[in-house]
Nucleic acid binder design. Structure first.
Lengths: 225, 225
DNA sequence: GACTGGTATTTGGTATGCCAACTTTCTCGA
DNA sequence: TCGAGAAAGTTGGCATACCAAATACCAGTC
């Protein structure tokens, strides 16, 4: 037996349209512009080279995920989350990630936990303010790694969607008030709690780390709205 | 100036189809039957009296919510969750509800917290095993009440979807091994923690209550799969 | 010039038709 | 009798056409 094409299974046009639109929306940085962005179904179909049907079905999914809003005979608008909505998403995220940390303490293997320390050398080399961009990426990856160690698909899927909405905010908040140094200390503490398989502590540290971000956005996130 | 009608705002056919399909799916108790249930787009359109387009868009939403699965040129199937998927949903639920309890301790008014004790007299009258049906309803309402007291829309929306999937399981688990009596004790403890505005305790009690259900389904939920 | 009323255009919502792929059924020969 | 293969029927995916509502535009009046 030899390996055939790994994929074949040419995705549906709907899936392709979904990916294209999601990428476009998440990359446009809606919070920079003042006016609302309207999407024209017909122009999108034309640009994507498909008919309106798969575009509409893709937009339906994006509406369900909270990215766009349909207004009958008015248009499809890209949703700008308010500050309180962002805070609410971070709180939900904290709840789920802390549960993932708890689950990881009993489910993850020693090797998987060791990966944490190895994969994030940034946390152990001082002066994070020098490489904020790389650190922001590592930050996101770190939290995703904890969630994957929890091995709970439902938590993974829900947080994956939440992350889409708050990714930009996370990075912006990092740059305010020199939060990076403190953030790294908390990350190290979380890793140590996981390695000690102290579920209660890991859960609490992750939750407080997340809620700290929520409070920070609550206080200083006025550039939203 | 005189008052005109507030508004007609007749929902879209898509929304109507969505409601009808969701109701049909949640009421059919998929776990009783052995074979998978297939939905025929054309028959559904015929029965609902609309064309296939709004039905397909409604099905797209239901797919996103995890109720159905599209298979190209094969059909649309109602998804039967496996035991481990149900357990994962209960774990995610526990995480979110415990965060809601934490938030409720600082956000809810005294009046709102007092409502808890008043609205659930079942918890204070002995012998719950005599009225399991009413108690099951009160059980669901109680947990939804806690979530609403948390005043976090994101948590409310996500758990609302999760509840759709686990509603049947919750009631079934209640009847196994005389869990009702113990469940009530835990509910009372949760109410007292909330009234004392003890965020740490309320959060922990809610989490352990939920994770207890998860463990129970894990052990005795073999009728799933 | 500002406002009113009507008309043309735009836009999302819906219905319908076609197509390729998959199933089922039928056919026919060994 | 049985099974391989062809033909017919289904089914979801997509494209297209049409509709009603909302908007934009424009002439006409004061």
């Amino acid at each position: 037996m030899f390996h055939v094409k790994p994929i074949a299974a040419t995705s549906s046009l709907r899936a392709l349209a979904y990916e294209a639109l999601k990428e476009a929306i998440t990359n446009m940085n809606i919070y920079d512009r003042k006016d609302e962005v309207r999407l024209d179904e017909r122009k999108l179909s034309l640009n994507l080279g498909v008919s309106r049907t798969p575009v509409r079905e893709a937009l339906t999914v994006l509406e369900q995920e909270g990215f766009v809003r349909f207004e009958a005979r008015r248009g499809v608008f890209v949703i700008k989350k308010t500050k309180s909505e962002i805070v609410a998403m971070i709180q939900a995220w904290s709840a789920l990630e802390s549960m993932a940390a708890r689950l990881a303490c009993t489910r993850a293997t020693d090797e998987q936990l060791a990966c944490l320390r190895e994969h994030f050398p940034e946390f152990y080399e001082g002066r994070p303010s020098d490489h904020l961009d790389e650190y922001s990426d590592a930050n996101i990856r770190f939290h995703q790694k904890i969630i994957s160690l929890g091995q709970c698909d439902v938590i993974r899927d829900i947080t994956s969607n939440l992350l889409m909405h708050v990714r930009g905010i996370r990075n912006a908040a990092m740059r305010q008030g020199d939060r990076a140094a403190n953030s790294i200390k908390e990350h190290v503490a979380i890793i140590e709690a996981l390695e000690a398989r102290n579920a209660e502590l890991a859960e609490r540290l992750v939750r407080e780390h997340g809620l700290g971000l929520a409070r920070h956005v609550e206080m200083y996130g006025d550039y939203l709205d």
